[in-house]
Each structure stands twice: as structure tokens, then as C-alpha cells.
């Protein structure tokens, strides 16, 4: 290779390392949305509706949410809204604050974080969001079938991989399953730390794919992911796994609106979202938004059940 090409290649690699692809890159902070998010006062005057999500990849989220935002912005003029914007929060606390202050009008998340945001902001759950044709989902706890772990009880003194503390299927549901099974769970800072013999240790993997890989690579004895992620393992791979337990089913996602939103607007949003699947424009927007299938009424008691499970887990 000539010298120029070598330098080019080196520069290329180093460039992407510096740009944050390396492992040590910090968790992204919330990037500012493409359009400046209005304050509550200005928003009211400007009749802008703001859709929000929590993510450490704001650009990717905005790209996926933009068609839905455009769709909504054009169809709420009856309630004086003429446009829509997006706001991505880095964490639950920020989103709760924005909902409470009126900076975000509509918020999408899975049931567990939705319950937490509700607790902090009094945001109102009004819709259920289907994804990939599924209204509900559940978590599975699994292990390699050659690991010697065949039941949840076999996890005592071993470590299980969970996604993160804000995940419904990767934290609340599997942990509640363990607790309901009479097991004591304790968080470990690292997979290299051994769990107490009478406890099930858990470590965060930050991603469902990581959880699966950790189990396969025997970094942890078992893992918990949602059933869809588990299904990504090939049939041959799944035949080498054993499912130790399945959680109860919960709604796929929850749509919440900010507290103190006027009734007409809330009803208009409800109507607009539930009718969306009936138009081709609406279907395009739904498809772009992480393969959303439709919106329908949130089953009664969804957040209450989340609170029960949360309480169960917190009090373990």
C-alpha cells in the first residue's frame, strides 16, 4: 500500500474513533431538536404541538418521528394548532419536567417508564401504541441449556443480564418475575462480581442484543429480554436455550399527554391517532415511526399494574 493510502486509512479509523464510535464515548446528551422547542407561553401563542421521546440517539429518533409529527401538525387546526415539533429528552426526569411545564404535549414510551413519568409529571395516559402488529409483549428469562440452569431457582448465586433500570421488558417484568418466584435479586456493578449464594445477581447490559450475547458467551448465566428480541435468535440458537420464565403481558407502548391539556385538544389527539391507520398518509407516518401498527385505547389499569410491579420490585 502506498504511503498516501495508508495515511488515509489511518486517518479514517482514527476519525471515527474520535467521532464517538469507540466504546469509551460518553452517552450522548440530548441534542437540540432541529427546530427550537417553544416554551409553554410561546407555544400557546404560536399554536404549536410538541411530540416528545426519550433517547440517547436524538437524531435517529427525530428522523423516525418526523412523518408522524408532520401528519399531526396539519390536522389539529380545529383546536387552533397549526404546526408540530419534536423534542427528545435524555432521561425520564427531563421529559417529566417538560411535560409538567407544557414544553412537550405528547409523549411515547413503554409502560414502565410511562408509569414513572406519570408519577413525576401527572401526564395522562390516553392511548396504546401497537408495534409490528403487536398490542402487547412480555419478557422471557433464558439461559443456555448447557449452563446447568434449568429453573429460575437455579439462578441463585448466579448472575442474570438485564437491559437497564428504565426498561419494562429488560428490567421491571423479569425482576418482578424473580421476586414473584420468591427469589432475592441484587444489582452487581460488573458481571465479573459473583452474586451472593442466596441471591440472584443482575447486571445491566444496556441493550437486549448485548443481553443475548452475554448469555451465549457465558458472561452471565441467564438474561431477560422481550419476546421479540428473543425471537431474533435463530431457531437453532433457541434450541440451545432454555426459557426459565415468561412475564405477564403488558401493552407494547403508551401514549401520554401533558397534564392540564385542554379537553378538546386531548379528544382531538385521541381521535386523530386512532383514525390514523385508516388513511394511506397515516399508514406511512405510522410505518416510519418504529413500525407502529396503530393506536387504540389503553387498557384500563395499565399504569396501575406497572405501579404494582414497581412496588413489588422496589420492596423486594
Amino acid at each position: 500500500m502506498n504511503r498516501t493510502r495508508r495515511i488515509l486509512v489511518s486517518t479514517l479509523i482514527i476519525a471515527f474513533v474520535i467521532s464517538g464510535c469507540g466504546l469509551n464515548s460518553a452517552t450522548p446528551t440530548a441534542a437540540p431538536p432541529p427546530t427550537a422547542a417553544p416554551t409553554a407561553a410561546t407555544k400557546a401563542r404560536n399554536t404549536v404541538i410538541v411530540l416528545g421521546e426519550i433517547s440517547d440517539e436524538p437524531s435517529k429518533k427525530i428522523e423516525r418521528l418526523q412523518p408522524l409529527t408532520d401528519y399531526v401538525g396539519k390536522r389539529l387546526d380545529k383546536v387552533g394548532i397549526t404546526s408540530a415539533q419534536i423534542k427528545i429528552a435524555p432521561n425520564l426526569e427531563t421529559m417529566s419536567r417538560w411535560l409538567k411545564s407544557g414544553e412537550v404535549d405528547i409523549y411515547f414510551d413503554s409502560p414502565y417508564p410511562a408509569m414513572l413519568v406519570n408519577a413525576q409529571s401527572d401526564a395522562l395516559p390516553i392511548l396504546r401504541r401497537w408495534r409490528r402488529g403487536e398490542a402487547e409483549y412480555y419478557a422471557v428469562i433464558f439461559a443456555r441449556n448447557d449452563s446447568g440452569v434449568n429453573t429460575l431457582n437455579d439462578l441463585k448465586g448466579k448472575t442474570i443480564g438485564l437491559q437497564d433500570a428504565g426498561s419494562t421488558s429488560g428490567y421491571l417484568l423479569p425482576l418482578s418475575l424473580l421476586v414473584k418466584g420468591g427469589l432475592k435479586a441484587v444489582e452487581l456493578k460488573s458481571a465479573e462480581i459473583s452474586a451472593p449464594a442466596d441471591h440472584v445477581g443482575y447486571v445491566f447490559t444496556n441493550d437486549d442484543d448485548n443481553t443475548i450475547q452475554w448469555v451465549i458467551s457465558k458472561k452471565v448465566a441467564a438474561g431477560a429480554v422481550d419476546i421479540r428480541s428473543y425471537s431474533k435468535i435463530s431457531a437453532d440458537g433457541r434450541s440451545k436455550m432454555i426459557v426459565l420464565g415468561e412475564s405477564e403481558k403488558v401493552p407494547r407502548q403508551v401514549v401520554m399527554v401533558r397534564p392540564n391539556i385542554d379537553k378538546a385538544t386531548q379528544e382531538m389527539i385521541y381521535s386523530l391517532f386512532t383514525e390514523m391507520e385508516k388513511s394511506s398518509e397515516g399508514q406511512i407516518a405510522l410505518k416510519a415511526f418504529d413500525e407502529t401498527t396503530r393506536f387504540d385505547a389503553l387498557p384500563v389499569g395499565t399504569l396501575e399494574r406497572m405501579k404494582e410491579l414497581y412496588t413489588l420490585v422496589m420492596n423486594r
Binding site: 500500500m1 486509512v9 464510535c21 469507540g22 466504546l23 441493550d207 448485548n210 450475547q213
Partner: peptide, 24 residues
């Protein structure tokens, strides 16, 4: 030589992610 250079850089930058099995 080019492969060695790239591998060394890649191994250095991805070592933690490999260790943590950080698939993403």
C-alpha cells in the same frame, strides 16, 4: 502492514466493547 496497522487501531478502540460484549 496495512492490515496490522488497522487491526491494532481497531483492537485498541474496540477492546472495551469486546470485553463488555457491547453488540450495539
Amino acid at each position: 502492514d496495512e492490515a496490522v496497522l488497522l487491526l491494532n487501531i481497531l483492537a485498541f478502540t474496540s477492546s472495551d466493547a469486546i470485553y463488555n460484549l457491547n453488540i450495539d
